[in-house]
Structure formats: C-alpha cells, structure tokens
Design a binder for these strands. Sequence first.
RNA 1: GGCGACGUCGCCAAGUGGUAAGGCAAGGGUCUGCAAAACCCUCAUUCGGCGGUUCAAAUCCGCCCGUCGCCUCCA
Length: 480
Amino acid sequence: MPLVVYNTLSRKKEDFKPIAEGRVRMYVCGPTVYDYSHIGHAKTYVAFDTIARYLRWRGNAVRYVQNITDVGHLLDTGEDRILKGAARERVEPMEIVERYTRAYFEDMDALGVQRPDISPRASAHVPEQIEIVKTLIEKGSAYEADGSVYFDVSSFPAYGKLSGRKIEELEDGTRETVRGEKRHPEDFALWKSAAPEHILRWSSPWGWGFPGWHIECTAMSTKYLGETFDIHGGGVDNIFPHNECEIAQSEAATGKPFANYWLLTGSLTVDGVKMSKSLGNFVTIKDLLKKHRPEAVRFFVLSGHYRSPIDFSSEALEAAGKGWERLTAPAFAVRERLRSPDLPAGSDAAMLKVAEEARAAFVSAMDDDFNTPLAMAGLFDFNKIINTLLNGDAPILRGTLEAIDSFYRETGGQVLGVIPEKASSAANGEREAGLIRLLIELRAEARKRKDFAAGDSIRKRLADLGVTLEDGKEGTTWKL
RNA sequence: GGCGACGUCGCCAAGUGGUAAGGCAAGGGUCUGCAAAACCCUCAUUCGGCGGUUCAAAUCCGCCCGUCGCCUCCA
C-alpha cells in the first residue's frame, strides 16, 4: 500500500512519489522571530515533525528545511516586525532575532520536535534573493519602480492556482494605500527600497533596501532542495498571499514546477476564536508548559488530523493529559518488567501476531495522509490487550515483552513522539528515583505489620509531592 | 461580498457507498486492608435540516441553516 497524501494544489489525495525514490525533500515555512512562539506554532511544527519522522521511519532519507524569518516581514503598518520588536525592547534588531530564535528552538525541543536539517536565516541569504529578483526582471516577470521591485502578477497566468483565487476578484478588495507605485494592485514586493533610518538594509542593483517577505522562501528552498522539490508545508493561513506568491516567483524564475505536494495544516483557535494579541487569548508555548507536560501538548495536537482546525482550551488539554497517561502507562509498565533479570526466555506466537497486526494498523492509518488520530486509536486498542496481559497471572516471556516494547518505541516513540524514552521525564534523576523506592520499601514493611496508618501517610505525602503509588501483583510502582 | 474548510454521543475525534473506531467525562461491577491503576458491562437505530440518486448514504447530488479560516500581518 502506498503512502497517500492530500495535495492542496490538486485538492485531492494522491499517491506520494518523491522525485528520487527513497529521498524526500521538504520545506516548511518557519516562524518570524520577533516574539515568543505560541500554540499555533506548536500545532504546525509538531504536525510536520511527525510527518518527517514518519517518512524517515518508512525508510526515506529526508532533508527537512525550515526557514527563520528575520527580515522583510512587514506589519500592515509597513513596519518591519523585527525592527518593531527591537524598538519595543530597546535592543539591536539582531538581538531580537537571536533572543527569539533561541526561544523558538527551546520550545520546539521541549515539545520533542526534532530540529530541521537546515534552519536557514533570511538575512543570511540576501545575495541569493537579489539574484532571483534580477532573474525575474530579466525574464520580464518583475519591474523596478523607484528603488523597489515588484512581481508583475499579470505575467504569471497561473497565479491563484493554489489558493483558488482569481486576479480580477482580488482587485476590489485591495486598499488604496498599498497601490502606490505598483502597476497592478495585486503585484507584490520582491525588493523594497529603504531609507537610512531603516537599520536592516542591504546594497542592491536598485539601491539600498531589503527583500520582500515571500522571496526568502523561494531563495532558501531552491538553494537547499533544488528548483523542484517534493513537499512544501506550512499553515493554511499562509496560503494567500504568501504561498501563492512563492509559487509565482519561483516558477516564473525557473520555468519549472516549484513543489510537487503542498501540505497545509489547519489553523488553531482558542476557545472558538482565532488567537490574537488584541483579544487577549494569546497563549505562548512557554506558558502552556508551565501547566502541562510537553507530551500532553503533542498528544493534543496529534489527536486531531493535521489538516483539521483544532480549538484549544484548558479543558481540552487536560483531557489530553489524561489520555496521554492512559496511552503510555502500559508502555512504561512493559519496560519496567523488562528490567527484571529472571524473565523466562522465548516468546508467545499469539502475542507476536497481535503486535504485528497493531503495527500494520498503525502503518495503514499513517499511510492515509498521516491520520494520527486513527493511528493513536490503534494504540489504545493494543493497550487493552497489553493491560489484560500485564494484569494476568500467566508469566510473560522475555521475547513477548521485547516485541511489545519495540512496537511502542517505534510507533509511539520514534514516529509520534508521545512515548518518551524515560518513563518519568520530569524526574530529577536517579537519586530521586532511589529515594522514592526507599519510601516504597518502608511503606511495604509498615503494611506487613498491618500499620496501615503509617503506610497511608507515606502514600499521601508522596502524592502531595506529585508522586503516585500503585499497588499491583508485582509490588508497588510509582509515577509522577 | 468572494474563496476555502467544516458541522458525527455531554466534550474531543476517526469513518467518504455496505449498515457508526478510539479518547475524556458519566453509571454499574471485579480486584484491593483502603485507595490508585487495570479489566468487564452500560452509554449515538443515528451522523446540522429538508429533498433527491441508489438494492443500500454519515458517506454522492441539490437547496437551506450554522461555525471557523482566508481575502490586510499571522504557523
């Protein structure tokens, strides 16, 4: 069964065939680093991280490029976002860039998002951007006007093919203020001239200025992935104008298709409405992680399909946290069992078959346009069987436990990233674990004496510290 | 106004022609010194509404109602 993906360009599901078999080149629009990352970023980048992880797990060599926008992305007031941040915090623009780039990676690391293979910065690729602008002028797709350069949309008939817009319809909605020196209101800037007060500016054939927002993605994606590559990703809210402009300028410059598959994530709302600073419902990843474990955030994101919109609320995240506990409990329990030195050798054929079937169900779900909700449902089904097995009296053979463990590690661990390596990631190392085991032993002795008051007191006080004890057939286990 | 996505149990969410997965919450039971966890049972004759196509529709078509996103910066 082939991997099938929904291609926004064709508006239907297609078999995924990379240009070079076994190699996938993907580009995802990255953040503009002028403030802390928010939960919308979390949704988009966890989704693409999972897609990249799955493609790798399926045996592809993936090159994942995700830009860092540190220049040229303007607010509707015409101000550069980076410069605005610098003025707000009274520091150099590049300090802003550095500060929020680091914060971005901290947040992504916390969420288990594996770093892209290349994270190119727009400001470090200005020469490449200038070259493309020159090419576009030579080919008659762009024109200079008073030190700025604009893309001539009328020169590219396919403009609108991704977002389904028509040029004629766009004219009406365009505001007077942005017309100015453009020939057509829907033309967009490739290069903007900048006065000396504008700190972020470079010398170009058209004088001092800075690159337009869209051109960086063309420059950096084609530089590292080639003129035509496999997957272009991003949030659906960038489909217009950003993605549309990328296609126009890239294909006009190279004369070749830009990206073969467009994968766009659904947007995220908070309590039913779009997140925005003015509404006061802006949630940063840092704030979120103060209250919730990172795996719960990942679980929340992956419990909806990447193309669907999701609505964030505290209740939803708490439910996700509980779901995550149930999802991971048997996986950790199996690992705990495997630490036992005297497990009977061999394996149970029926259980190996169950694990094989679960793996097949997982692959079939993920092969269908990365259907993570369905894939996780499959893990829950598998859990039911494993929980029953763990609760039973029959001894479990080492080979069986190993097969179960490797299933969890691959699907929940390597691909979905919701089952971490260590059962208690929040635990403070071995010393803390040792102390807890010591208390468990003391409690066991008290209970042997039927001194339940002492035993319950230990359990209660550990619970107050966030450590939950669970008494089972194999003794007491703990979790945070 | 235009473009797009969507409306499935109290909440979240799969399913896109063959007779409604899974999670959270809720109720009952088993186990337990008591818990917790786990397991078992219950929980949508029904998929926004109305028509149509079909042997058969949540799934296809039409109309209507509603929600969200984009059209100006956003992942």
